[in-house]
């Protein structure tokens, strides 16, 4: 088991290195760079062209005149010190400062969302599968079909509408009130955070539910057709034990491997929801950085997503190996 984890961590580190390198290069592939974007903005606002020497100077100060590969190594050189570069888009603020709180909130939201969507989707899936072709099954399946085919951002707007106009909550987007937005963590801020949390959490959680529900229902139906389920019934076991101990236990395994994929998806996939709801996650700065070729910021977000993906998969593999004895560590 230990060697399994060590080996996985080691290969994850190599994967991570390659991901950062490739994403750093890919961001710079389109013509232009962050400086030319910035210059264009300046020229548009002042109405005068900047002298070429100033632009050259800018490039030199930021080190953009060097080959990409050198820039890359200079960038990752700072990682051990917690220096992930700076963002020109955010007035030269260090990337680490911009992302620190957002990363924490993103992980928190992602994990909480996962618990909510699983906590609802799995019981509903079991309920529907054990009542296959009943009215309830049709109702839930239709609902999930609608859920899965409606784009997230639309669901977010609909839910927001329901939350504000039907349920009369005073939620107006975001995770904090204006006065707490950039304040340090205090009891008051935590309380404010807790007050803001339910609506976005419900929107994110319900959004991911449909897919999980469908997988759970289909898996369980597959398992319930297996011979060992009939064999378990033939032993004289209660139906409840047959369903939970013998069938559900196996039907959740594919969901565990799915969680590895879902963790980064919850973050990148909710960019639009985050913009709609004004959530301080990694999403909004990421999309801004990509638009402006702000490569240190974009590269760091990509790297964080990759780390989530790798950690998520690592956790999924370990849990799966523990949950399914047929999986070998070696």
């Amino acid at each position: 088991m230990t060697t399994f984890i060590i080996r996985r961590v080691f290969s994850a580190a190599i994967t991570l290195f390659l991901i950062t390198l490739i994403s750093f290069i890919v961001i710079q592939l389109p013509p232009g760079d962050v400086v030319s974007n910035w210059v264009r903005q300046q020229e548009a606002s002042t109405g005068q062209p900047l002298p070429p020497e100033t632009i050259e100077n800018l490039r030199r100060t930021y080190g953009f005149d060097e080959p990409i590969i050198i820039q890359y190594f200079k960038w990752i050189d700072g990682f051990p010190r917690g220096d992930f570069g700076f963002s020109i888009e955010y007035s030269n603020a260090p990337v680490a400062d911009i992302l620190a709180q957002r990363t924490g909130l993103t992980v928190f939201l992602g994990v909480a969302t996962l618990f909510i969507s699983w906590g609802l989707a799995i019981p509903f899936g079991i309920f529907a599968a054990t009542r296959k072709n009943s009215r309830w099954d049709y109702f839930l399946s239709t609902l999930s079909f609608i859920g899965i085919s409606t784009p997230d951002f639309l669901i977010a707007v609909i839910y927001l509408f329901i939350a504000v106009f039907v349920l009369k909550t005073d939620y107006a987007g975001g995770l904090f009130s204006q006065e707490f937005k950039d304040a340090p963590w205090t009891w008051e801020r935590l309380l404010d955070f807790a007050k803001h949390l339910p609506v976005p959490l419900a929107i994110l959680g319900l959004g991911g539910m449909a897919g999980t529900f469908r997988i759970m229902r289909a898996n369980l139906l597959d398992i319930l057709d297996q011979q060992f389920i009939e064999a378990a019934r033939a032993k004289g076991l209660r139906e409840r034990i047959v369903i939970y101990k013998h069938a559900t236990r196996i039907a959740v395994n594919p969901l565990i491997s799915r969680v590895g994929m879902q963790l980064p998806l919850l973050i990148s996939g909710t960019i639009i929801i985050s913009i709609v709801l004004d959530l301080p996650t990694l999403g909004p700065p990421f999309i801004r950085a990509l638009n402006r070729q702000d490569m240190f910021l974009a590269g760091t977000v990509l790297m964080i997503l990759a780390i989530f993906l790798l950690i998520g998969n690592l956790i999924a593999d370990i849990v799966l190996a523990w949950s399914d004895p047929r999986i070998q560590y070696e």
Partner: peptide, 12 residues
């Protein structure tokens, strides 16, 4: 006892 010994036992 059933026909398929490969699938008559719960794998987990």
């Amino acid at each position: 006892i059933f026909q398929e010994p490969m699938t008559s036992l719960n794998p987990v």
